[in-house]
Amino acid sequence: MTSDNQSNEIAPLTDPGIPAHLHRKSDLDPKAAKKAERQVGILFIISALGTILFIYSYTFMSEKIFIFLPVLGNSNAKQLFLGLGMAISLFFIGMGAVHWAKTLMPDNEVVAQRHELRSEEVDREDFVKTVKEGAAAAGLGRRSIIKRTLGVALGLSGLTPLLLLRDLGPLPKDDFSKTSWEAGTRLVTDPGDRPIKPSDLEIGAVAQVLPELPAGKERKLEDIGKDAVLLIRIRPAEFQLDAERLSWTHEGIIAFSKICSHMGCAVALYEQTTKHLLCPCHQSTYDVTRAAKVIFGPSARPLPQLALALDAEGYLVAKQPFTEPVGPSFWERDSS
């Protein structure tokens, strides 16, 4: 159907052919050519000066010099001149070469013929024949046992590299659902590791907290990535919580997992006036007074709330572990 289409083409205008070659000044006037040559030379010399600037800056310039420049501000002279030296050195080699090519190398346009990529009909037929003969000689079509077993073998062998990757990591088991928070774990400041009493927090105050470490244990980033908690104190009357969630707070102090339930960033952007928590990564917004209900953005779940209690010494502790996995969703998560 395509070949029919072309016959519909209207009579085209005539192609006037490649326009006549226009000579450059440097082609006609030896003086202009000489001038162009000098220009190229100057460009190469500027490049050489750039290299010298580079060497000088590298070897002799102190790191401690700062110079003030418009736009750049107060800049480190060594870094600046090293870079400028290198830039000049390279840039003007290029400028010189291009200027040389443009003014002094032949600029006659050349026409080369294209050849259709498709091979000659004879070659194509030969090729098809060769493939057919080869296939016939190998007998793949006839020997079905070979064909099938080869398929099985090849398919199975693909498992080898996959299996070899198995030891890249352990199985997750129920890791995603566990944090270091246990009933009675003290909340301590991050950084500082100081336990917190309710009286330490004024109304409107926040604290970034982590679980207290058992003696002799080091804090790993993997743990922080699940344990980080944000402590917020508001007026108790402002809570709109059900009885259970309200019992998880203490005198207006409420604790949420700081790991965003969307993609795991630290949700620590607390607006005191609106009582909203905002995640700076994707702008999910949570309402603190309503148990971190999502009020804007892509997150689909509230932040898990940590139940609070006081220990014998009056410090804030977790009443119980988190009742749901913290952080982003995963297939095995039972969110219903």
Binding site: G192, R194, D200, L201, E202, I203, A205, Y270, E271, Q272
Partner: peptide
Amino acid sequence: TGPQSMPVFSDKIITPAE
């Protein structure tokens, strides 16, 4: 004082030295 949207950072949470 925690002006406007900013929360308060109490002295026991971030000490005066901090």
